Amino acid sequence: MLTAHAYAATSATEPLAPMTIQRRELGAHDVLIEIKYAGICHSDIHTVRGDWGPASYPLVPGHEIAGVVTEIGPQVTKHAVGDRVGVGCMVNSCRECASCRRGEEQYCLKGMTGTYGAVDRDGTITQGGYSSHVVVAEDFVVTIPDALELDVAAPLLCAGITTYSPLNHWGAAPGKKVAVVGLGGLGHMAVKIAAAMGAEVTVLSQSLKKQEDGLRLGAEHYYATSDPTTFEQLAGTFDLILNTVSAQIDLNAYLSLLAVDGAMVNVGAPAEPLSLQVFSLIPGRKTFAGSMIGGIRETQEMLDFCAEHGIGAEIEVIPAEKINDAYERVLASDVRYRFVIDTATLS
């Protein structure tokens, strides 16, 4: 087995620390990836700190992985040594259920295998991208186009596809008015992608402190939700609202901003329940929905779209020893807009 350098959580309360982990031997359809960059997602923090339930420790987080193929199994046909590739939030699924057959492995009816903290096919717990190497089945590895640098591409494997998928599904396009709630790691990608799709984009943020950034990233309008007149002024405006924040918000207030047949889609995942009044939906035939990531096919489509439109994440590259500091800064909203670990600093 291959020994890889990594940064891991040993409990819900201790800082992440360096350790070595074992990667499985290559199977016939596996690829070995030398990880170059790994993004830090808010989900990583939720998971290692037990916000979404008990975790198995030690745990190596990271599901925004960009790297280079260094070895392939004997029956691999989709990737070759030297290919620039990415791995997102899942590394396997049943491949047989209706969702998998549709190319929506993220909704596998038997449960997709997460990139970290899940039971792998050999019975071990998967370990993620805060590491030097990873072994992944070729069907769950995507190609990173040459037009995208690996560091700005890494966050696309979660933040990019998490926002692209609902924007694609609910039809963000010319003539559509799209609001993005929150301008963070997810929100800034939503703005870029929705604008590239041709939609008229509005950012709804607590304050105007990031207004200049929002407009630079592609939004045409920017409003502070701390101002109660915002909700009066924008009532009945939007075809689609994408909520990217992982915090308590007044759903009923935001639903009032939807036009008839509009949809509000949650991609942020707060640990606490949200309260919803059904009469916020019935008048206007409105929809409140959720969305995860996309399937492998759609993830590749997203990467190709981003390459075509020159879209990468806004990042701050950090060495491994800054991971714990980065976690605290994410929680304090002190990053514009995604931390990316230079995995060369792990060894």
Rank of each mutant, 00 (worst) to 15 (best):
T244M: 09
L346N: 11
A8E: 11
G123Q: 12
I311N: 05
T13K: 13
A153C: 11
L234S: 05
V317K: 12
D44I: 04
Y254M: 03
R336E: 11
G123I: 04
S246R: 02
A118S: 15
I296Y: 01
T163A: 09
T237K: 12
P74L: 14
N324H: 10
Q206R: 15
T3L: 13
S207R: 07
G160F: 06
A9S: 13
Y107N: 14
P174E: 13
D239K: 02
K36Y: 00
I125D: 04
D250N: 15
V265G: 03
V178F: 08
A307P: 06
Q233C: 00
W170P: 01
L217C: 05
E105A: 09
V278C: 05
E34A: 14
L204W: 00
K110H: 15
S43P: 05
M189D: 01
G103Y: 11
D325P: 00
V317G: 04
F140G: 03
C108R: 09
K176G: 06
G160K: 03
T237E: 14
L217G: 02
M189C: 13
T162P: 09
A253Q: 14
V203N: 06
T287E: 02
T124P: 00
S99H: 12
T230P: 06
Q106E: 14
N92A: 15
L281F: 04
A66L: 04
S99W: 03
H63T: 12
T244L: 08
N243G: 06
V119Q: 14
Q211H: 07
V181P: 01
G262F: 06
Y116D: 08
E298L: 14
M1Q: 11
L208P: 00
M302P: 07
Y223D: 01
T162N: 09
N92I: 05
G39V: 06
V152R: 11
K192R: 15
A179K: 07
E14T: 14
S207L: 03
T77D: 10
I315D: 03
S205T: 07
H5L: 03
A313S: 15
R24S: 14
V267F: 02
G312T: 09
P61E: 10
P319W: 01
A320T: 08
N324W: 09
H133T: 11
G182K: 05
T229S: 15
A247G: 02
G128Q: 09
A8I: 12
